[in-house]
């Protein structure tokens, strides 16, 4: 009896030890994953905050050699391009997601899903070149429009797949309950399923907007850059990522510091989009079932 209990207590000890070791490994893993994120925050804030001032948001870039200046035009340009891309990409993405989840079966849906996954994996620079060929050249120049189309194409598959996944979590009997009430199929989808999952679908939208906010490569080919307030959406338009890129590869230290501040503003911008959209839709809680 004694040997049994001593054996048990030894096993207990060993089991607890392994348990603690595993917890330690998990915490370490989480820390390793988060460390780069926080070091990026730290680095960007440390280098960027010097130039962060009201004028950074309101004024044009200063000529070389002059201090001061800002990225007002790039910020406005980004807002224009991202705004238009969102108007284009969100309805398109949600519609594609609804189609994938509710209307397509068999081979056609498999093909479409494969194509969308492929589109998600296409390097964004390729999309930039594509839009350069089909929009920029026929239109005769770089424009905010072209940039928005390129970003919408990047955004669409992200939103489509997340919308599809969210709708698929709704059990079939909810669709049947709607149909059994004599409601047309499209109304069941729009006013019961999509509405019921609106908060979750918006999370996909946030991901999409956040993703395109930092895209640089496709904008180099489509909206290019501009040192002035661009009046028309048909003109080349400055954007935050392209401006950061231009400044950071320049040999001038003032510009490089400006690029850090731009990066900080970009991070804050993405953070704010997340916050605003989430708080806006958080009162529309989705049910778990």
């Amino acid at each position: 009896m004694k040997s049994l209990s001593s054996a048990l207590s030894f096993n207990d000890y060993r089991r607890k030890l392994i348990n603690y070791m595993m917890i330690g490994l998990i915490v370490l893993g989480a820390f390793v994953a988060l460390a780069p994120l926080f070091s990026i925050f730290y680095y960007v804030i440390e280098r960027g905050y010097h130039n962060l001032s009201w004028t950074f948001f309101t004024s044009l870039p200063a000529p070389i050699g002059e201090s001061g200046g800002g990225m007002g035009n790039a910020l406005l340009g980004s807002l224009k391009i991202i705004g238009m891309a969102t108007l284009l990409g969100v309805p398109w993405g949600i519609a594609t997601g609804v189609y994938l989840s509710e209307y397509s079966y068999g081979k056609s849906s498999k093909t479409l899903r494969f194509v969308i996954d492929l589109l998600m994996g296409v390097p964004s620079i390729v999309i930039g070149i594509f839009i350069f060929t089909v929009v920029v050249r026929p239109m005769g120049g770089f424009s905010a429009y072209a940039g928005a189309v390129a970003l919408a194409i990047i955004m669409c598959p992200i939103i489509a797949r997340s919308t599809e996944e969210m709708l698929k979590t709704v059990p079939i009997h909810y669709r049947e309950a709607g149909l059994a009430l004599g409601i047309q199929r499209w109304k069941v989808i729009l006013f019961i399923l999509v509405r019921g999952k609106w908060g979750a679908i918006m999370t996909g939208v946030v991901l999409g907007v956040a993703r395109i906010s930092g895209e640089t490569a496709p904008l180099l080919f489509t909206s290019l850059n501009n040192q002035y307030w661009s009046g028309s959406l048909k003109d080349p338009t400055s954007s935050l990522p392209v401006q950061i890129y231009t400044y950071s590869i320049s040999p001038y230290e003032e510009w490089q510091m400006q690029a850090w501040t731009g990066a900080l503003v970009l991070i804050i911008f993405v953070f704010l989009i997340n916050l605003v959209i989430r708080s806006f839709f958080s009162n529309m809680r989705d049910s778990r079932d």
Partner: peptide
Amino acid sequence: MVFQKPNPFPS
């Protein structure tokens, strides 16, 4: 029609 599992529409 009433189904096996109660299914009031979410949200």
